[in-house]
């Protein structure tokens, strides 16, 4: 469970988040929608302590993030835009192992997690592939596997479809749907809502650093009008 309690945050005197309160339940598939600059990225980066609120508090599983960064970062796996800048190793297997190695796990457990994570993103058996030989969609999926290897209860993704062609985008979405079906919570920030609304349990719309709407995908379509997000063609 990720809980925001009256979180405000400013960057260089410009308010980016204003008094945001929000609870993301375990196993929930949430969409974070909103135009560029609406505060989506800033909100996400508070979930695992990459940013610290100016006021208010963020809790993961009931513990303030700042009290236990390691627990928060293990529990909330994060995938950023530009997957090619997120890899720490030149080969797939070594990269996915990076998170669990940092947690100091036994080698056998690390290997088990790497296998499971690659399996979950349809990249099983590709451990020795070089990352710079992968397609954009494959790179995105390996970045997701890197987060999954931390064994998180939530997977948070910031605009993961940027730069992906349509088949690659669909391959990532399909994996997210499968993860969600297996019980992993997914929080997906995107300004492109095509195909994703049917997967989501909930849509949170951001505008000017505040939650402008929060509800089921059916209600969301009306609320989203005027938020500069790309909605499904009707």
């Amino acid at each position: 469970m990720i809980e925001f309690r009256s979180v405000s945050y400013a960057f260089e005197d410009v308010s980016v988040l204003e008094d945001v309160s929000l609870t993301i339940e375990d196993g929930e598939f949430g969409l974070l929608a909103g135009a560029n600059g609406s505060g989506k990225t800033t909100l996400l980066r508070h979930c695992n302590g990459l940013l610290t609120p100016d006021s208010g508090e963020v809790l993961v599983d009931g513990t303030p993030v700042s009290d236990d960064l390691i627990a928060a970062r293990s529990s909330v796996g994060m995938v950023f835009q530009h997957p090619r800048d997120q890899f720490v190793s030149a080969t797939v297997g070594a990269d996915v192992a990076f998170g669990p190695e940092n947690l100091g796990l036994e080698r056998a457990e690390i290997d088990r997690r790497v296998d499971a994570a690659l399996e979950a993103v349809n990249m099983a058996g590709r451990e020795d592939d070089r990352i710079d030989t992968l397609s954009g969609g494959e790179q995105s999926r390996v970045a997701i596997a890197g987060a999954l290897a931390m064994d998180p209860s939530h997977l948070v993704l910031d605009e993961p479809f940027t730069g992906l062609d349509e088949p690659a985008r669909r391959s990532v979405l399909e994996r997210l749907a499968a993860l969600s079906a297996d019980g992993t919570g997914v929080l997906l920030a995107t300004h492109d809502l095509r195909d994703v609304l049917t997967l989501a349990d909930r849509v949170i719309a951001m505008r000017d650093g505040q939650v402008a709407a929060d509800g089921s995908p059916d209600d969301a379509l009306e609320d989203l009008a005027g938020l500069e997000v790309r909605v499904p063609d009707r």
């Binding site: 960064l69 390691i70 627990a71 293990s74 940092n102 947690l103 100091g104 796990l105």
Partner: peptide, 9 residues
């Protein structure tokens, strides 16, 4: 207990 010993950079 394992995680407690992790020393973050």
């Amino acid at each position: 207990t394992e995680r407690n010993s992790v020393e973050l950079v």
